[in-house]
C-alpha cells in the first residue's frame, strides 16, 4: 500500500520559512495570502502481511510518525493510506 505523510509545523510554533514566503507572495502581487506553513511530504510503500487489517497499517504508520517522521514537540502530522 502507498502511504503519504504530511508533516507541518505545529500551530503556535514559529515557522521562519512560512513567514518568509508569506511576505514574498504579496511582493509578487498575490494578495490575500495568510497562514503559510511549510512542512514536509513523505511518500512510502508499505508491505503488510497477507490479511493484515487496515487498522494494523494505520497503527504502524502512526507509530512511524510519532517516533521518527515527525517531532511531536514542534510538528503535527497527518497521513493517507491507499490500498494497492
Amino acid at each position: 500500500m502507498n502511504v503519504r505523510v504530511y508533516v507541518t509545523p505545529k500551530q503556535g510554533i514559529l515557522d521562519p520559512q512560512g513567514a518568509t514566503v508569506e511576505r514574498a507572495l504579496p511582493a509578487l502581487g498575490f494578495q490575500g495570502v495568510k497562514d503559510v506553513r511549510i512542512g514536509r511530504f513523505i511518500e512510502l510503500t508499505l508491505d503488510m502481511p497477507q490479511g493484515a487489517t487496515p487498522e494494523a497499517a494505520d497503527a504502524l504508520v502512526d507509530d512511524m510518525c510519532k517516533r521518527l517522521l515527525a517531532n511531536p514537540i514542534i510538528e503535527d502530522y497527518t497521513y493517507a493510506i491507499d490500498e494497492g
Binding site: 509545523p9 510554533i13 521562519p16 513567514a19 518568509t20 517531532n71 514537540i73 514542534i74
Partner: peptide, 17 residues
C-alpha cells in the same frame, strides 16, 4: 539531546533562514 527527549524543547530553523 533534544530529539532524544533528554532535554526539553526543540531546535528549529534560524529565523533569518
Amino acid at each position: 539531546l533534544a530529539e532524544a527527549g533528554l532535554l526539553p524543547g526543540a531546535l528549529i530553523r534560524n529565523t533569518c533562514l
